[in-house]
C-alpha cells in the first residue's frame, strides 16, 4: 500500500470512530435521550414537532443497531438533522457558512504562524547563541503558553476597544454587501486580521522551537558544507539546502498541530464573534441545541481529518524518501 493510501485508510477509521461516537453520545447519557436532547425546548415545541424531531434524530424504540444503520443512512444522504434553536432549519444550512469562514481563518492563521515560525526559528539557529537566539524563542514560547481566548481578549481590548484601530468582531462590516468587490474583500481582510494574528501568535512558538532544533541539526550536515563549498549564493543554501530539509520534520508535526490550532481557533472565534464553526458551537452550547452541536462536532472533525490528509500529501511531495519508501513497500 502506498503511503498516502495508508494514511487515507487511517483517516477513514478515525472518521468512522467520530461518527460512531457522535451516534452513541446522546444514547449513552443518563436518562432518556429524547428528554435530554429536547429538554430546553419542551415548551416551545408542540408534540407533533417533538415526534418529527425524534424521528429525524433517529431516536426510536428500535434496537440500537437498527438505529445506528438508520443514522448512517441519513448521514450518507447528507442529513445531519434539524436545528432546535432555529427550528426547523436543517443544520447543514447553518453550518455551510460557518465552515467557509472557519477554513479561511484557519488557513490564514496557520500560514502566518508557520511562515513566521520558520523564519524566526531558522534565524535563531543560524545565529546560534546570539542575543536574538536567547530572546526570541523563549519569548514566543511565553506567548505560546497564553490561552487562546485570553490573548484574544487582550488583543481585542487593545486594538478594537482601546485604540479602535480594527473592528471588534464579525467577518465583515455591516455597511458592505457581500460580493467580489474590493470594499467587501477589504472589509473581510480587516476583520480577519485580529483573530488570525491571535491564533498565529499563540501557535508560532511551537514552530519556532521545532524549526530551530531541526535546523541546528541540518546546519551540521555534510550537504550543507558541500552547498557552501559549491559556492552557491547564500539564499540558495538557506532555502533549498537548509530550510527545505529543516521543514520536513516540522511538517509531520503540522498534522497534529492542526487539530490543536483549530481548537484554539474555535475559542478565538467566540471572543471575536467571528461567524465560524467555533462561534456556532458556542451558540449551540448556550442554547442547548444538541443536533447543531453534534453536527458541528462532526463537521469540525472531518475538516481536521481532511487537513491532516492534505498535510500528509504535502509531506510526500516535499520528501522524496517517503514516496520512495512507499513505492518500494507496495
Amino acid at each position: 500500500m502506498s503511503f498516502l493510501l495508508r494514511r487515507a485508510a487511517f483517516y477513514a477509521v478515525a472518521g468512522f470512530v467520530a461518527v460512531t461516537l457522535n451516534f452513541l453520545l446522546p444514547r449513552l447519557m443518563p436518562g432518556d435521550p429524547a428528554t435530554t436532547l429536547f429538554a430546553g425546548y419542551a415548551d416551545q415545541l408542540g408534540p407533533d414537532d417533538l415526534a418529527s424531531l425524534k424521528e429525524a434524530y433517529g431516536l426510536s424504540d428500535a434496537p440500537l443497531l437498527a438505529q445506528y444503520a438508520d443514522y448512517l443512512r441519513s448521514l450518507l444522504g447528507g442529513d445531519l438533522g434539524t436545528s432546535l434553536s432555529q427550528f426547523p432549519t436543517p443544520v447543514t444550512d447553518l453550518i455551510r457558512d460557518g465552515l467557509g469562514w472557519s477554513l479561511l481563518l484557519g488557513t490564514v492563521s496557520v500560514l502566518i504562524g508557520f511562515t513566521a515560525g520558520t523564519l524566526l526559528g531558522s534565524f535563531a539557529a543560524w545565529r546560534r547563541g546570539s542575543r536574538f537566539d536567547t530572546l526570541v524563542p523563549p519569548l514566543t514560547m511565553f506567548v505560546g503558553s497564553f490561552p487562546y481566548f485570553f490573548l484574544a481578549l487582550l488583543v481585542l481590548y487593545l486594538f478594537a476597544v482601546r485604540w479602535q484601530a480594527l473592528p471588534q468582531g464579525h467577518a465583515y462590516g455591516m455597511d458592505v454587501a457581500p460580493g467580489l468587490t474590493p470594499e467587501f474583500l477589504g472589509s473581510v481582510a480587516t476583520h480577519l486580521l485580529l483573530p488570525a494574528t491571535t491564533v498565529a501568535l499563540v501557535s508560532v512558538g511551537a514552530w519556532v522551537l521545532s524549526i530551530r532544533n531541526t535546523m541546528i541539526g541540518v546546519l551540521d550536515e555534510d550537504y550543507l558544507t558541500m552547498a557552501e563549498a559549491k559556492g552557491l549564493r547564500t539564499w540558495r543554501v538557506m532555502g533549498h539546502y537548509a530550510a527545505r530539509n529543516a521543514i520536513l520534520p516540522t511538517v509531520t508535526s503540522l498534522g497534529l498541530a492542526v487539530g490543536h490550532v483549530f481548537s484554539g481557533q474555535l475559542l478565538t472565534e467566540v471572543v471575536f464573534t467571528y461567524p465560524g464553526l467555533g462561534n456556532q458551537l458556542y451558540a449551540a452550547v448556550t442554547t442547548h441545541d444538541y443536533p447543531l452541536m453534534q453536527a458541528l462536532f462532526l463537521m469540525i472533525t472531518i475538516s481536521v481529518l481532511a487537513v491532516n490528509f492534505a498535510v500528509d500529501a504535502l509531506y510526500a511531495a516535499l520528501d522524496p524518501r517517503v514516496r520512495g519508501a512507499a513505492t518500494a513497500s507496495s
Binding site: 487511517f10 497534529l256 458551537l281 472533525t301 481536521v304 481529518l305
Partner: peptide, 20 residues
C-alpha cells in the same frame, strides 16, 4: 490512541461536557 489523537480534542470535550 492514534485515532483519539487525530480527533480534535476541544470540540469533543465541549460536546461531552455539554451532555453532562
Amino acid at each position: 490512541v492514534n485515532v483519539v489523537l487525530t480527533i480534535p480534542s476541544l470540540p469533543l470535550i465541549i460536546v461531552l461536557a455539554a451532555f453532562l
